[in-house]
Structures are given as C-alpha cells and as structure tokens.
Simulated assay, not measured.
Amino acid sequence: MLSALRSSTLAIGLTLLTLPAYAFDTTARAAYVMDQKTGTVLLSKEADQPLPPASMSKLMTLYVAFEALRDGRLTLNETLPVSEHAMSYGGSTMFLNTQDRPTVEDLLRGIIVLSGNDACVVIAEALSPDGTEAGFARYMTQRGKQIGMDNSNFANSNGWPAAGHMMSVHDLAVLANRLISDFPEYYPLFAEEEFEFDGRAPSNKRNRNPLLNLGIGADGLKTGHTQEAGYGLVGSAKQGDRRVIFVLTGLDSTGTRAEEAEAVVNWSFRNFVERTVANADEPIAEAKVWMGAQKTVGLVPQEDLTLLFPVLNDKDIDAEVVYDGPVNAPIRKGQQVAELVIKPEGLPEIRRPLVAAQDVPLGGFVVRMMTVGGIVMKDFINNPLESM
C-alpha cells in the first residue's frame, strides 16, 4: 500500500544548466536530431507523426539484410536471382534483369549508393518468410516494433509510394542509431560516394547524400524523395568523439535539403558541449526504505551521466528524483529504484535511471515491529474514530 506513494520532488544537490528555449529553425515538415553518445535530443518536430518515408525506408531493408549476414543466413559473395517483380520498379534502379545473379555485396552497395529499388526487392524476396516482397514488408514491420520503432508500417521494401507505408522521423533516428551501433563492420558502406555496377547506370552511380564530401564528418546514411514525401535525409556526422544523428523530411528541393542538413550538423556541434553532471560512484540523493535494516538507500546513476548543454547559459534548473516509495527491502546494489528527471526548457524531458548504491537487507524483527507499530499509531492519531 505504501509502495504506491509517489515522490516526485525529492530535493537533490545537483544543479543543471538549462538548454536554450529556442531550437533550430527548420522548414522541414518533421525533424529529429539527437546526440548519440549522451542520448540528448536536440531537436524534435512532429517526431512521432507517421509520414511517407520514400527511400529512407530502405534503411530497414538494410538492417534486416545485415542481421541475416550476422546470423549466417546470407553471405556477401552469395548470388541471388532477380525476379520479374524486382524488374518492375522504376525510379532509382541498378537496371537489373532476370538473367543477372548479383552478389549480396553488390546489392547492398546498389541500395546504399544507388538507391536501387530493384536491389531492395531482390534482397526482400531472398529473406521473406513467404518468398514475396509483401511478406518481407510484414516482417519489416514486426521487426521494427521489436527494436523500438512504434510508428512504422511497411508495405514494400524500398519506399515506393503505397497506402500505409509510413515511418516517423523518430523511428528513422532509432533505426539509424541501431545500424551504426549494431553493424559497425558494414557502416562504412554508407560513406561510399560512388558505385558502378557493370557500367549499366552511368547517370546513377553517385551517392545522393549531399554532405559526404564537405569535410564536416558526415558519413551516412540515406536520402529520400517522392512527390508526396518531399525531400528527406537520414544523416549522421562525427566530430571528435561526438556523433550526431538527424532526420529531416518534407523539404521542397534538393538544394534546401542540402542547406538544412549542413546547417543542422554545424548547429549541433557548435552550440552544445558535453558535461558530466553525476558520477556513478557518488550518490546524488537518498530514497526512503520500507522494512529495511537502513531507513534510506543512496541513489546513483548506472554510469557517469554526461549530457549536452548549450555553450551559452543564463539560468539554472534543478533536477528531480522520481520514485515509488518507500522502497521495499530487501534492496540489491545496482537495482533500479528511481529516475532522475531533467526538464530542459523548450526540449523533451530527459529521464535517466538511478540505482541503489548499496545492499539494504530486510530489517530484523524489532525493526519490522517498530515500523508496523508506528503506522498503526499514526493511523490512530489521524483517524481516531475509524480505529476504534
């Protein structure tokens, strides 16, 4: 019963500098920018709204293909057949035909560099549970939800306009982060600027990512464009030990896409700095304990807590610790018992888990009886008639 009580304003000796009330001024229909190392969200605009993703959804096909390579269900030098259905797509293609048997490695480059719609279908039909692109799309939707993409639904493997084919920019950022983190051995493919497949597509051999050769650390990931979706880009850039992941969609031209993407990267690196605000071995607060050998337990972050803050700051903000308490003993060291909540002005709140700094065993008989007795006495004082 007492464990249902909520403590949301536990004072702690931690003062944090607020992020700015302003955000990057983008004309994109939806946008999402995050710092990968700290998880700090720098920009969020219509982030969870499902929208047509165009070719940016090819990233999910690539993720599934990389999983198959990791699991041994595909190999890079394996060749795959090309179906009539794969040939039926227009737009950006590798100009495959049914006499071809491209290698998986060529198909991956065909998707990443050339944005090949046909290459996506070849991969899809090879990995589909039922051998069809539609079956692969259903698998993509299911797998996406398993890795945290709650606002994505796939109707095909390549982002060709289709009813119900939707992704949010937040989901695209989640996917980009997983591609970078889960498959570092394949991520360098996204920085390749040119790929010639059998000399067939001289006009379609260059990567459409406008940031790759600008010297700003950009090394991925995927552009997209349809009339309905507008122009979009899932991008990432690394400078020093910081990496920024960003998604822009719904822009009106390739030029605007290039300008806004470059501006987002520069803004993200120039206007924020890292600061360690809590150390994993230093308690920042205490939580009350129920029936424990100790009355309180120290709270520490699971690891050193480093966040991004603006270069210029003009006011402070106090962090809060939120937990359901008192916390029932016994408590194990490292057990999550609370959250640190930081509410940056103008940006989504930041929540980080706090864990017990030490073991707290269950109190002895005397401790338990005194605790129960105190509750009974308090109840009698507050409600004397009801207790008679």
Rank of each mutant, 00 (worst) to 15 (best):
M1C: 00
S7L: 10
L14S: 06
L14P: 09
T15G: 01
L16V: 10
L16W: 09
D25R: 06
D25G: 00
A30I: 01
Y32H: 10
M34N: 08
T40G: 09
Q49T: 14
P50K: 03
S55G: 06
S57H: 02
K58W: 11
T61W: 13
A65W: 08
L69A: 03
L74H: 05
N77E: 15
G91A: 10
T93K: 14
T93C: 11
N97Q: 01
T98M: 11
D100A: 07
P102D: 02
T103C: 10
L107P: 00
G110R: 02
V113N: 08
G116L: 08
I123H: 11
E125S: 10
T132Y: 13
A137W: 02
R143A: 15
I147W: 08
I147M: 14
I147V: 15
M149T: 05
D150W: 03
N153S: 15
P161F: 07
G164M: 06
H165R: 04
H170Q: 12
D171P: 10
L179I: 11
P184Q: 09
P188D: 00
E193S: 14
E194T: 14
F195H: 09
F197V: 08
G199K: 08
R200L: 07
A201S: 15
A201W: 04
P202I: 10
N204S: 02
K205A: 14
R206F: 09
N207P: 02
L212I: 09
N213S: 15
G224Q: 07
A229Y: 11
G232T: 12
V234L: 03
Q239K: 15
R243D: 02
T249V: 07
T249I: 10
D252A: 05
D252Y: 07
G255A: 03
A258D: 15
E259A: 15
V265K: 04
V265M: 04
F269L: 04
F269T: 05
D281M: 05
E282I: 06
E286Y: 14
E286F: 10
K288Q: 14
V289E: 12
Q294A: 09
V297P: 07
L299R: 00
T306K: 08
T306E: 07
L312R: 14
L312P: 06
D316F: 13
D318E: 13
V321C: 01
V321H: 02
Y323W: 00
D324W: 09
D324Y: 09
A329G: 06
P330K: 01
R332F: 00
Q335K: 00
E345D: 12
G346P: 05
P353V: 09
Q358H: 14
D359F: 07
P361D: 07
V367Q: 15
R368W: 11
M369H: 08
T371M: 12
G374Q: 08
V376K: 04
S387Q: 15
M388Y: 15
M388Q: 13
